[in-house]
């Protein structure tokens, strides 16, 4: 086992209607090879053995791609370090004796379910409002190579499509805005010929849903771009701004 001793200040909240509070937990024997979530596993193991309620937190793939893990660690989404999710954060980023705050994503649109787990279904509803190309399953579509797509466009679309829907952008934004998430999908599909026919409708519908969910307004602080584990650029927000403006102006 490791040799670091840490003090965790963890947000505990029994349910959506509980007020919640920060609770201190000393953790000993932390190895620098542990991931942050494995360190929480060790703490939870200990809590269960003592008959106490373990800390609830979301996680699944533990390799930085599913987007399920979601902790606000020492004042930053997914903790210190860039281009990583919480599950990829390792304890060697911390020092013996550190005090670490662990909080859930804070947003009206992401209500806390329990402790550090939040409900991010708002993202699904934004996606359902228009984050798709209206094509049915069919074995008779045109060949994948029938429409060449400039490599730059395909690459840029990919850069946007790499979003994992974790919500770090919302959690980080001082305004709790979901613009980076929404923009990533709008931008991806508007860059591809397949997505162009319904680009305007999509931008209008997704923004309308985003506003309905209670997210804040983007004020271009750029914090989302910095904390995004996939490094999605503000350029995509600008593209959404353009798409939406064009849609509003030309809409009949």
């Amino acid at each position: 086992m490791g040799n670091m001793k840490l003090t965790l200040k963890v947000w505990r909240q029994n349910g959506p209607n509980d007020k919640g509070r920060i609770v201190d937990y000393p953790v000993n024997d932390v190895s620098e090879d542990m991931s942050f979530l494995e360190m929480l596993d060790v703490l939870n193991d200990d809590l269960v053995r003592k008959g106490e309620d373990p800390i609830a937190f979301d996680h699944d793939c533990r390799e930085g791609i599913c987007g399920m893990c979601s902790l606000f660690i020492n004042g930053e989404a997914h903790g210190p370090g860039r281009g990583i999710t919480t599950c990829q954060l390792h304890m060697r980023k911390f020092k013996d004796g550190d005090t670490i705050y662990v909080e859930p994503w804070r947003s009206t649109a992401f209500p806390v379910i329990k402790d550090l787990a939040t409900n991010r279904s708002a993202f699904d509803r934004i996606q359902a409002a228009g984050g798709f190309v209206s094509v049915n399953t069919s074995g008779n579509l045109v060949d994948g190579n029938a429409v060449p797509i400039p490599k730059d466009d395909a690459d840029k679309a990919f850069d946007a499509a790499t979003c994992i829907g974790c919500g770090a952008c919302v959690a980080t934004c001082p305004n709790g805005s979901a613009m980076l998430f929404t923009a990533a999908k709008v931008s991806q599909l508007s860059l591809l010929p397949q997505g162009k026919p319904e680009a305007k409708r999509r931008a209008l519908a997704m923004v309308e849903q985003m506003d309905k969910e209670g997210f804040g307004n983007c004020s271009n602080t750029g914090a989302c771009e910095v904390e995004c584990p996939k490094g999605i650029s503000l350029e995509h927000i600008a593209r959404l701004n353009r798409e939406y403006l064009a849609a509003v102006v030309t809409q009949e």
Binding site: T137, G144, A154, Q194
Partner: peptide, 13 residues
Amino acid sequence: IDQCVAQGVPFAR
């Protein structure tokens, strides 16, 4: 492949 391209999957080109 055709289906995914039509959905807007950004395959490498």
